[in-house]
């Protein structure tokens, strides 16, 4: 996925980005919950061309049994990219990157899930990236947190995530694949706004201290918008039934 080939222009003369967005603009977002019948909770989240489905099972009997804890539920997470999600076929076997992202996503969600309410059980999250166009880990965190809420698992807050990048020297919100490949930096951030906690912060590339601070506040602003959509999505499911 590295930045191969000739570098395209990322910021146009009018200050807009290669896809016409302003630097602090999110991609078009679509969210849906309860999309999978067999899962206890599920969500579909779309950020532009990045599409992710998350399914939650549990709390259920921990398998294998030795992983169970008498103090809390074990949270398990599998992040996986479908072979058809990328330009070139991706091998369906879990790669080093996917194993790492599974861990990072799990750790982004652990602080909000009330695992201590369900001792000796496991809560399993399955995340499938259907179409990848940058920002799959942040989209996955957003989708997984919705799916957990859809399953009715008590959570202190929802987690929303977005990445900030630096493209042609400009800080840009919600970077896509092109900006990730040819940009100078990529910083995914996940946060639980009402808990006032950042649960994921990574940085790939170079940012100055000031750029980092500015980038973080830009990310938190984006997270605020995503968080609002998440809550609306959760509530809409019931308002619809009521409207019938």
């Amino acid at each position: 996925m590295g930045g191969k080939g000739e570098k395209p222009k990322l910021i146009m003369e009018d200050g807009k980005r290669h896809d016409g967005r302003l630097p602090d603009e999110l991609r078009p977002i679509k969210m849906e919950i309860g999309v999978l019948k067999n899962a206890d909770g599920s969500a579909y989240v779309e950020f532009g061309k990045t599409r992710v489905v998350a399914a939650v099972y549990g709390p259920r009997e921990a398998q294998p049994k030795h992983i169970a804890s008498p103090y809390r539920a074990v949270l398990r997470c599998r992040y996986h990219m479908a072979p058809f999600s990328t330009d070139e076929r991706k091998s369906p076997a879990p790669s080093r990157r996917e194993i790492e992202l599974s861990k990072v996503i799990r750790e982004a969600l652990e602080p909000v899930v009330m695992t201590e309410m369900f001792p000796r059980t496991s809560i399993d999250i399955f995340i499938e990236v259907i179409s990848a166009d940058g920002g799959t880990r942040t989209t996955s965190v957003t989708a997984a947190s919705l799916a957990l809420a859809d399953a009715g698992i008590p959570m202190k807050d929802l987690v929303a995530a977005v990445a900030v990048g630096k493209a042609d020297g400009v800080l840009v919100l919600d970077i896509d694949q092109v900006e990730d490949n040819y940009g100078e930096a990529d910083m995914p951030v996940a946060a639980a706004p009402s808990l006032n906690e950042i649960t994921l912060l990574q940085l790939n590339g170079v940012l100055s201290m000031n750029e980092f601070k500015e980038g973080l506040s830009l990310a938190l602003k984006g997270i605020g918008e995503i968080y609002k959509i998440q809550k609306e999505t959760l509530k809409n499911k019931y308002l619809q039934v009521e409207g019938e």
């Binding site: 909000v112 202190k156 807050d157 929802l158 706004p193 009402s194 809550k231 959760l234 509530k235 308002l239």
Partner: peptide, 8 residues
């Protein structure tokens, strides 16, 4: 009122 996780 209909609430979601994290609502005050």
């Amino acid at each position: 009122t209909l609430v979601a996780p994290g609502d005050l």
